[in-house]
Amino acid sequence: MSASSRAGDLPASVTARTGCRLGMQLVLAYRFEALVQLVSASVVALLNWSLWTAIYQGRDQVVGRSAAEMTTYVVVAWVITTFYGTRVDQELSGRFREGLIAVDLLRPWDLHLHHYFRDLGRAGTALLITTLPLFAWTGGLLHLRAPRHWWTWPVFGISLLLAHAISFGFAWLVGVASFRLRNAAGLAHLKATVIGVLSGSLIPLDLYPGVMRPIVLALPFQGMSHTPANIFTERIPWDQVWQPLGVQLAWAVALFIVGRRALRGALRAVVVQGG
């Protein structure tokens, strides 16, 4: 079965609409999980904020960042993980494990696009009920530095959307890999680790020492937290902001194409496990 568009598939606009709606409904159906995410992201944001506030005691600057910029970075970088953090890899491997992938392939839409839009719907709903409330309380209580220019907001928005696309693209590859490995639990662990270390969600990536810095900055994961948070803290000047956005876009597109290829290849070798 081919993963690219097939005759008889619904048009992409319908795939987008139904996918987004399903994603939203799934978040709303699991409200408790959303609440858990809200509280747990708050705890981590508070921890990182406290830590960096302590580090700046008696210091004005650490690697060229002021205390206000650094605390804003670590809080924003973590808060946005609630937006782009996807579980499509676990969903995909779950569908596969239960043999339901066979049913999914019969549906009249493109599996890859459907899941992308479904996760976009998930992210949009999470934005409203988790990410924005987090922004509100951390911004108010932790004295974060709001962007000075109005245009930072729309640019930050675009960067977030691209961050989500990169996150989805990577998670999709992990999910497809589980087709062959038959089990994704260990792989999911590794994915969480890779994102924790390489996305910049805990610490700005330019703080990594020596040999690690150029490597982590060259990988796609920096587009997940590092780039959006640096745009939010206005570390990148206005006339250069297209560069990190372009890098994000390039990675998002590359991961999208590789993801389609990978799915096609995996489906050729797929063994549907009976129920």
Binding site: V62, V63, N183, L187, H189
Partner: peptide, 28 residues
């Protein structure tokens, strides 16, 4: 196989902390 992957995964997750500390203390 699953056991080993889990063990390695958990070990690396725990190791993040070390990278984190190392990065901070290389500057302060």
């Amino acid at each position: 196989g699953d056991f080993l992957l889990n063990a390695v995964g958990d070990f690396i997750v725990a190791g993040i902390g070390l990278v984190f500390l190392w990065a901070i203390f290389s500057h302060v």
